[in-house]
Lab assay of single mutants.
Amino acid sequence: MSIQHFRVALIPFFAAFCLPVFAHPETLVKVKDAEDQLGARVGYIELDLNSGKILESFRPEERFPMMSTFKVLLCGAVLSRVDAGQEQLGRRIHYSQNDLVKYSPVTEKHLTDGMTVRELCSAAITMSDNTAANLLLTTIGGPKELTAFLHNMGDHVTRLDRWEPELNEAIPNDERDTTMPAAMATTLRKLLTGELLTLASRQQLIDWMEADKVAGPLLRSALPAGWFIADKSGASERGSRGIIAALGPDGKPSRIVVIYTTGSQATMDERNRQIAEIGASLIKHW
């Protein structure tokens, strides 16, 4: 058993032996400061991975655009179909130039040979490839079927209504393609630790998130040596930015963190910096 498999397999085991986890309101002070700095709403939640207890939250039940963070949920739905014998990670999917949409750094290189379902999930999560996400959405029946999958998990909040890139429109008060921090954190925890997916599929999902290559300026920039993080970021119109993550010290995840912001006029660099500073406060007061 690899170190990674050891880590995921023991998450339920550690729940019975973990020390009490204490919240630190200092992080919420930073979240509120980020709102002031960005001139935008910020949603935040910090969840204990083992118990599911909410440690801190700010606007946990307000809607925010999901942006590309939905791609983790999408690959969770794909893995659920794999577990049920309805899909194979090794199945190759062929597509054409007409299928390519904006920001497809991986799929645009494989027009001649296509990509496997496994490769598409990797591209969608680690590189946020939009065509990969659309191709995967097609395999499960489209955005409405992803919403149905989430409903069956008990998440009646999170919804996907459109495809890439239209889902990134982020119109104020538009509930399409949105979630709430509390709903996203709970759903992510179920995917990573619950019985919905097999152990192998849970491991695969967290491996893809751990290999994320496009979230460096966010929480990863504040991470001390030896800490673990598996994450997925997102960005969209109207100053929207977000990240969902499982992270913790000693090389294993122990908390879920979800951060969303929307409605800012700030630059992408400034949005990144504010999220990184929230992460730094979280780690300092861990």
Score class of each variant (00 low, 15 high):
R41A: 08
L223S: 05
I243M: 05
T186P: 06
L150W: 05
M153D: 11
I11H: 06
G43A: 04
R81D: 07
L55A: 04
K213P: 03
L38M: 09
T131G: 07
L137M: 09
Q86L: 13
E108N: 11
K53Q: 13
L89E: 05
Q265L: 13
A266C: 12
T267L: 07
M180N: 13
L218Y: 02
G242V: 03
Q97G: 14
L79Y: 13
I140L: 13
W163F: 10
L188S: 05
S236M: 03
N134H: 03
P12L: 13
V157G: 07
T198P: 04
Q88N: 13
S68G: 03
E175L: 11
L79C: 05
K144T: 13
I125Y: 00
E145P: 07
M184T: 00
F14T: 15
L10F: 13
G142S: 04
G226C: 05
T267G: 11
D99L: 09
A225E: 14
A16H: 13
E145N: 14
A9V: 12
M67Y: 00
Q88H: 14
V214I: 12
A222E: 12
P60E: 15
T69N: 00
P253C: 07
G142V: 02
I140V: 11
S128N: 03
C75I: 10
N173Q: 10
N173S: 11
S254M: 11
L137S: 01
P172W: 09
S254K: 11
I229N: 00
M67L: 11
T187M: 05
R7S: 13
Q203S: 11
H151Q: 14
A9G: 15
L19G: 14
A183R: 06
T158N: 01
L218W: 02
F228G: 03
M127V: 12
T126P: 03
A222D: 07
N50T: 15
S236I: 03
G194C: 12
E35V: 02
A132T: 00
Q97K: 15
P253K: 06
D129T: 00
G85W: 05
A170G: 11
A182H: 12
Q203L: 09
H94Q: 13
R202L: 03
I278L: 06
S201T: 06
D99G: 06
Y103G: 05
Y260N: 02
P165V: 05
V8F: 15
L196G: 11
T112R: 12
D250A: 13
D174L: 03
S201C: 06
I275R: 02
F58A: 08
R7Y: 11
E277W: 03
I171R: 14
R41P: 09
L89A: 06
V78R: 00
R7G: 14
R91S: 05
Y44T: 01
D33Y: 15
L10W: 09
S240D: 11
W208R: 00
Q265E: 15
L218R: 01
K53E: 09
Y44N: 01
E61K: 13
G242P: 00
H285G: 06
P25V: 10
A222V: 15
G226I: 00
H24Q: 08
E210D: 07
L188T: 07
V82R: 06
C121L: 05
K213L: 11
H5C: 13
Y95D: 02
L160Y: 00
P65I: 04
D129F: 00
I275P: 02
L19Q: 15
R255C: 03
S80E: 11
L19F: 15
H285P: 03
P12C: 14
A225P: 15
K213Y: 09
G141E: 04
Q97R: 14
I229R: 00
D161N: 04
G142R: 00
K284T: 11
S68A: 00
N152D: 14
V257E: 00
K53S: 12
Y44R: 01
A124T: 11
G226A: 07
A132G: 04
L89N: 03
I125M: 12
A9T: 15
L197G: 00
M180Y: 09
A222Q: 13
S96I: 09
S201L: 05
E166S: 09
P224M: 01
V72D: 03
A15D: 03
H285F: 11
S96P: 06
L223Y: 02
G43K: 00
E166N: 09
S281G: 05
F58S: 08
D36S: 14
L219K: 01
I11S: 09
A266S: 12
I283M: 08
E169D: 12
A132E: 00
L167W: 02
D129G: 01
P60T: 08
E62K: 06
L167A: 06
L10K: 04
D99M: 11
L55T: 06
V42E: 04
I283V: 15
D83A: 04
D33E: 15
I206C: 11
P217T: 10
G242E: 00
R59W: 02
L136P: 01
T178H: 02
E210T: 09
T262N: 08
L111A: 11
P165H: 03
R176W: 07
E210V: 12
R189Q: 12
N98K: 14
S281T: 14
C75W: 07
G234L: 00
A246L: 14
P217R: 09
G43M: 00
P105S: 06
L146V: 08
R91L: 03
G251Y: 08
V78L: 05
L282E: 02
M268C: 07
M184W: 03
D207G: 14
G194R: 07
I54T: 10
G216V: 07
L135I: 12
K190D: 11
R238G: 14
K232M: 02
H24D: 08
L219N: 03
M67K: 00
F22Y: 15
R81Y: 07
V82G: 04
